[in-house]
Write a protein that binds this DNA or RNA. Structure first.
Lengths: 310, 310
DNA sequence: CACCGTTACGGTATCCGTAAGGATT
DNA sequence: AATCCTTACGGATACCGTAACGGTG
């Protein structure tokens, strides 16, 4: 079994099980490719592909597991290669950050700017999605790190570091009746329609749970995916929203009013997510250093490879 | 970069950085081995070993990370090989279970017996340790699955399935004053010295937290590593203990008395632990089927490879 | 006949062992 | 002199491309 075989196997799967197509893409002869797969199958003494009328049509059960393992193996091989490169060209490289709209718009700009001044030759990239998306992007290698709340579902090969807490506010239009109430509590909130994050956001469930635990059933009129969209509808008078404090921008949000909700809801917990059991690139560490100076970057790589001994 | 190179690299590290020794162990020539490492280092354009006076003395920083990644890669390669083998000899194989004393002694015997009747050609092995040990053994590949409470520290590449809950009991010697009290509460318990699990056990902290939350400070006279040792000292009158109900054996524990503690302490949660992102052997699944029939074994492999798409 | 995958053949590159060299204790 | 790692050389092996073959629509 060779890495080359696993790589070629993977390529065929990703090219619709078409050996000829994959061979062309890889600039190699079709028989050469075919032979490598046959050799691999012979060594494992199992067919990896389901063959139908002289065509490959799908993966066998074994093939499927081998495919998953191969992906992981080849990702780690890439890590090793990058590790070598990075050691020789410490200035260059790239850094891909997966995050949410709120972080990308309200938190990251300053840091990103600082980073690109300090490390001008690093290619930066921001990928955006829900917290779950961000985690998955890190887990499958498309991003180096994520900055978001924890994802709703457990993603086991991620490693999270707590970065900071963002208190929550109640966002309402100017002139909204809640403006006049001094000590806002849940019973006041429940009288107004609520605009909230979409289902993929853990913030959503945390906020709703507070209502539910008080036996209150808020009237959710809209589920939206980002703070700006939510704000737009709040501005239109469709309802109020519970948002992270940073989403309120005093300059631009002239038609909105923000009031603290810290006494009602737990703050938003923002985590930095890294792939566990993998190499943490120098630039990931550099970024973390800027972004969360409290975190000791010297221990991160060790912690990422936790399992030792016994 | 070849698997062979990574393997040889690993072998040298594990043989005190002595190429000659490793070569002998691997039945290959010493120059051959040396050359492979040099080729690898040349490809990565980085030295992996610190060389001192013509000797290899340790790993460089890069080498250390490559070592960690290699271990993981080679483990997964082994998984692929086992996968092939298993497909051809579904009856044979081995199954290594990492667990704690309590489970090994009070829960597993019946299941193990059933298993070995049903799958007589499978080599069974039980490794024993604290819950943390068990988790680590699974994580680093020395065991196939663990049966224990969750470990105290987070081990990120493990996948846990909840198996069952074990209610807790108060264990005391016959004739102990607590015998006579009808409704035992924390304030009764606090008057007696406590024998408890060692620090590595999450049960320990869960039990102590209950006391602490009630502002009570139990007098811990002994920390022990397994239920039988604890029982021995309880029998000697050194104190009482909070144990999982299964640890009380009516037949043999004639000098002990067990009373329910369910109203005071959360039950013990026993989890099955598997390595995430790895192949789950047929026999692991067979065992799980016997051990925790509620778990649908058909979904486990899929869940273990969670991360897909975006 | 067009498409696709497998088998056959031969040149090239890689791997690995033996032999020799260089450095250190 | 003994130990250890690296460089040099030559044969065996594995790899891969071209060519040919077999099955399918």
């Amino acid at each position: 079994m060779t890495l080359q075989q696993l790589f070629l196997f993977q390529q065929i799967v990703q090219n619709d099980f078409n050996i000829s197509k994959a061979a062309e893409l890889l600039n190699m002869s079709q028989p050469g490719l075919s032979r490598q797969i046959l050799t691999l199958e012979k060594e494992l003494d199992t067919s990896l592909f389901v063959r139908n009328k002289n065509r490959l049509t799908s993966l066998t059960n074994v093939g499927d597991v081998v495919f998953q393992l191969s992906k992981d193996i080849l990702n780690k091989i890439e890590s090793i290669k990058r590790l070598g490169e990075e050691n020789n060209f410490p200035d260059k490289g790239s850094l891909t950050i997966a995050t949410t709209h709120t972080q990308a718009k309200y938190v990251l700009p300053k840091i990103i700017q600082q980073f690109s001044i300090k490390y001008p030759f690093v290619k930066l990239r921001i990928l955006q999605g829900t917290p779950s998306d961000s985690s998955k992007m890190v887990a499958n290698g498309s991003a180096d790190l994520s900055i978001a709340t924890k994802p709703i579902e457990k993603i086991s090969n991620l490693f999270f570091l707590k970065c900071y807490e963002i208190p929550r506010i109640i966002m309402m239009p100017l002139g909204h009746p809640l403006n006049k109430i001094k000590n806002i509590d849940l019973h006041h909130l429940i009288n107004h329609p609520l605009i909230t994050y979409d289902f993929d956001f853990i913030s959503r469930s945390k906020i709703l749970d507070v209502f539910f635990n008080a036996n209150l059933n808020p009237n959710i009129v809209l589920n939206a995916i980002d703070a700006d969209v939510i704000k737009t509808y709040v501005e239109l008078g469709m309802g109020i929203a519970i948002l992270p404090a940073i989403a309120y921008d005093q300059k631009n949000d002239k038609n909105l009013r923000s009031r603290t909700a810290s006494h009602l809801f737990e703050p938003n917990l923002i985590y930095l997510g890294l792939r566990s059991n993998d190499f943490v690139s120098r630039h990931s560490l550099n970024f973390i250093e800027l972004f969360a100076p409290d975190i000791n970057i010297n221990n991160i790589q060790k912690e990422i490879f936790q399992v030792e001994s016994i």
